[in-house]
């Protein structure tokens, strides 16, 4: 067997499954978004669904909301995760426990976290009750609106809670493989702590941080169940809007759902392209 045949055989199952499921799903979504469905007698592809989606007032607001959720969640989670990773790299009492909590958090499904956040910070949640007990508020309405709110604070809070540990663990693992040599060298050459971090450590963990952040962004942008639990009635996060259009009993709105799905896919592909470029810049170390 030549290497080429062997490689082809090894890759075949994965590529077949991905082509059969992922590409087919994506392709059909695309075709239907152009209202092209020969099976149903639609043989003239057009842009009507996109036109309908783009002119509907709700869509752009939903798109903006989802981009806001993803951006805010990713930035906050990444910054905090960097701090958490630097903290956990040191030894101190209780470190093991915190490291365990960080890992445990990774196993908790998003929807569980979303419900926990809801019970914690809603206007009648645990914090509001504590505020009442402390005499800060006299009624739930006086507590800040953190869930089902137009700025999606509750949703962002959930993503920060859930993704901070994810990014932290990736960074910790990266830091472990890097060791402390480079920093030590920099410090011995007279660099300040900040300089050593900014010019030595940060560039080294940046690829890992960027990839992890891209994954987080993609998830926060496209998740359905979290805004379903914590989101406001308007504007809706884009995935919720798309699902609503898909389950509308008016079949015409299905093409619009597909068009929204394509918009979501385009954002995901853009992220993938960014990551791919970053990886190539980082050089290939495969044999």
């Amino acid at each position: 067997m030549t290497d080429r045949t062997r490689i082809a055989l090894l890759l075949a199952p994965a590529l077949l499954v991905l082509a059969g499921l992922f590409l087919t799903g994506l392709g059909l979504t695309l075709l239907r978004s152009f209202r092209y469905l020969p099976g149903l007698g639609l043989t003239e592809p057009d842009l009507a669904a996109y036109a309908a989606v783009l002119t509907a007032p709700g869509f752009l607001r939903s798109l903006a909301l989802s981009l806001w959720i993803a951006t805010a969640s990713t930035v906050i989670a990444a910054v905090l995760a960097l701090a958490a990773a630097l903290l956990l790299r040191q030894t101190f009492p209780g470190r093991t426990l915190i490291a365990f909590l960080v890992q445990l958090n990774l196993t908790i499904p998003h929807i569980v976290g979303a419900i926990g956040i809801l019970y914690l910070v809603s206007q009648s949640g645990s914090f509001a009750r504590l505020a009442h007990a402390a005499g800060l508020i006299s009624a739930p309405a006086e507590f800040p609106i953190l869930t089902h709110d137009p700025y999606a604070i509750g949703i962002i809070l959930l993503y920060v809670w859930k993704e901070l540990p994810f990014i932290t663990l990736i960074l910790l693992a990266n830091l472990q493989t890097l060791g402390e040599d480079h920093e030590a060298v920099a410090r011995s050459l007279g660099a300040s702590r900040w300089q050593a971090f900014r010019h030595v450590l940060l560039p080294m963990v940046l690829p890992g941080l960027a990839t992890a952040s891209a994954l987080v962004f993609a998830f926060a942008f496209g998740a359905y169940e979290v805004p379903l639990v914590l989101g406001a009635h308007a504007p809706k996060a884009l995935p919720v809007l798309a699902w609503q259009a898909w389950t509308d009993t008016d079949l015409a709105s299905r093409s619009e759902a597909m068009a929204m799905a394509v918009v979501i896919a385009v954002v995901g592909l853009a992220l993938l392209a960014l990551v791919a470029r970053g990886l190539r810049l980082g050089g290939q170390d495969a044999r």
Binding site: A141, I145, H148, D149, P150, A232, H233
Partner: peptide, 10 residues
Amino acid sequence: LWRGGATYPT
């Protein structure tokens, strides 16, 4: 209304 009608329960 609740929350001054700025938002409604869903």
